[in-house]
Structures are given as C-alpha cells and as structure tokens.
Computed example of a mutant assay.
Amino acid sequence: MSIISAIVVGFIVGLIARAIMPGTQSMGMIMTTVLGIVGSVVASYGGAALGLYAAGTPVGWIASVIGAIVVLFVYGLATKKR
C-alpha cells in the first residue's frame, strides 16, 4: 500500500512542480510521477544532510515540491537543446 501512496503523492508533487517551474516541460504522466518521487527523495536526503530532518523521517509536501523543482531544473539543464 505504501508503494501506491508514493506513486500518487509523486504524481501530485510532480504536477505542482511543473506548474510552478516556468517554461514548458514536455514530460508524460510517468515522467511526472518519477519527477515527484525523485524530488521527495532528494528533499529527504537534503534535509537530513542539513540537519532539518532525522534520517528516515518523511518530508512534507513543501519540501517535496522544492526537491522536485530542483530535479526539474537539473533535468532542464541536462536536456537543453542548443
């Protein structure tokens, strides 16, 4: 059941991050979900490294969205067409 909730939360976080980030991102539904899940993981490890969260503690929605925006920014840099 936790995998299904991670997928649903990842999709919602990915949608919010894509709505906040300026520009157009041509990503499908699966990539949006992966973006949200990876953003949550980045926020979890980043918060633990900065001492904001204890290891293994679930992060909040805002931290997940910020992590997804960071991942989306890096993804945009990596796939930038010249």
Rank of each mutant, 00 (worst) to 15 (best):
S26V: 12
I16E: 10
L35A: 11
P58R: 03
S44V: 01
A68R: 02
L50R: 09
T33P: 01
V9H: 10
A63I: 02
T57N: 08
T32H: 02
A49V: 01
A49F: 00
V59L: 12
M27I: 09
A43K: 01
L15P: 03
I37Y: 05
A78Y: 00
Y75P: 00
I69P: 01
Y53F: 15
L52T: 14
F11R: 04
G56C: 09
Q25K: 00
A6I: 05
F11V: 02
G47S: 14
V74M: 14
I4W: 14
A63M: 11
L15T: 06
V8L: 13
T57L: 12
Q25T: 14
T24L: 11
L72F: 04
A78I: 09
L50W: 05
F73I: 12
S26I: 05
T57H: 06
Y75C: 02
I4A: 10
T24E: 09
V9M: 03
I3Q: 14
P58C: 11
V9L: 11
Q25S: 15
M27T: 09
V74A: 14
G51E: 07
V70D: 03
Q25I: 04
W61R: 01
G46Y: 05
G76A: 13
I37A: 13
S64Y: 02
A48W: 08
L15D: 08
G46T: 08
M27E: 12
R18A: 13
V13P: 12
L52V: 15
I16D: 07
G14T: 08
G76V: 06
Q25P: 06
K80A: 15
F73T: 10
A54H: 01
T24W: 08
L72C: 06
I30P: 00
G60K: 04
M27L: 12
A63W: 05
F11A: 09
I69C: 14
G56S: 13
V41W: 05
L50G: 02
R82S: 11
Y45V: 07
V74E: 00
A63T: 10
G60M: 06
W61E: 11
L52P: 03
A54W: 01
T32I: 02
A17K: 02
I12F: 13
T33W: 04
G56K: 06
Y45S: 07
I30K: 01
A55Y: 05
V71L: 05
G60E: 15
L77K: 03
A19P: 00
A54D: 07
A19Q: 11
L72A: 15
V59M: 07
G23P: 11
W61H: 04
T32Y: 03
G47I: 05
S40V: 09
V59E: 11
P58T: 12
G39D: 08
I62D: 12
S2E: 15
A55Q: 13
T32Q: 07
G28S: 10
G36I: 08
G39R: 00
V8P: 03
K80G: 07
W61G: 08
G39M: 06
F73P: 00
I66Y: 02
A63C: 03
A54Y: 01
S40I: 07
V13R: 09
V65R: 01
L52I: 14
I37S: 08
